[in-house]
Design a protein around this nucleic acid. Sequence first.
DNA 1: TATTTATTCTTGCACAAGCAGATACAGCGC
DNA 2: GCGCTGTATCTGCTTGTGCAAGAATAAATA
Lengths: 149, 149
Amino acid sequence: MGIKDDAVEVRAQGWRTLAALHGLIEAELERALQAEAQLSVVEYTVLDALSRQDGWHMRMQQLARATALSASATTRLVNRLEDRGLLTRILCADDRRGIYTELTPSGIALLEQSRPVHDATLERALAEAQEVPELAPLVDALPRLHARV
Amino acid sequence: MGIKDDAVEVRAQGWRTLAALHGLIEAELERALQAEAQLSVVEYTVLDALSRQDGWHMRMQQLARATALSASATTRLVNRLEDRGLLTRILCADDRRGIYTELTPSGIALLEQSRPVHDATLERALAEAQEVPELAPLVDALPRLHARV
DNA sequence: TATTTATTCTTGCACAAGCAGATACAGCGC
DNA sequence: GCGCTGTATCTGCTTGTGCAAGAATAAATA
């Protein structure tokens, strides 16, 4: 057991902690968003990403990256949201392969309704994680990543 | 926009960063473990958790918690691994509802073969994430969580 | 002891995800 | 213009997952 082996173990443990915290938060968000807005976490992520985008439209591939999903999963995800009237597909004028997705008023409304739920649930999930000794250090580190100095 | 709103936004951004890093690492591990040992990340997690356990056996419910999976998914996950001969179910003598799972020699062998792949992939994934400005701070924070002072 | 209640695991069903292949278009060289 | 390669999106198929319901056992209570 040398220094090198320790580094490996420290990384593995860090990864397990990351995965555990991620799972906990995602599970809580899933339940809350499903209950309050019939949205899954990825679906919320799409609406949120679109609203954060200038002009409120993104191409499928950007969406795939934003959600860490495959292209085919993104197609079906957009299908679901389009069927519910939350966003619309818009053909790309300059690149006719491309397709823009854009929030509808209905989509914006649902997002604004569910954002408080999302934020409150996130706060609660982090507070719960704070109580788990294994997770607490990571919870403490998170806000320091983006905090204004 | 007050201090309170900032806290909400900081949390949301921290969560997005966490999710992004988690997705990146998991995707790389998935590909590597699948290619080298025909194991998914959760399957590897089960083998690893069992090997880390005293006596090398755990109950289904412990496994469900360790993998952040539902009870039914855990049942089928154990089925798959049992069918491949990597672990065995052992009836619990004192609580006949309970079922222990235990690694077989074959399972131990596969784990020992795939652990280096896992560790190397994790190191590579973290190095890649280090190059993404948005993820770098979190990557830096990870090893500090468990590092021996 | 008999009966209810809770826990642990498994199964039926519906759905979302990935991979591979197909289609449509862009960009480039001839 | 014609063909070729690469990119963007969609569809068929298989698989893993969660939820709800079920079966077996433990624990509690009358």
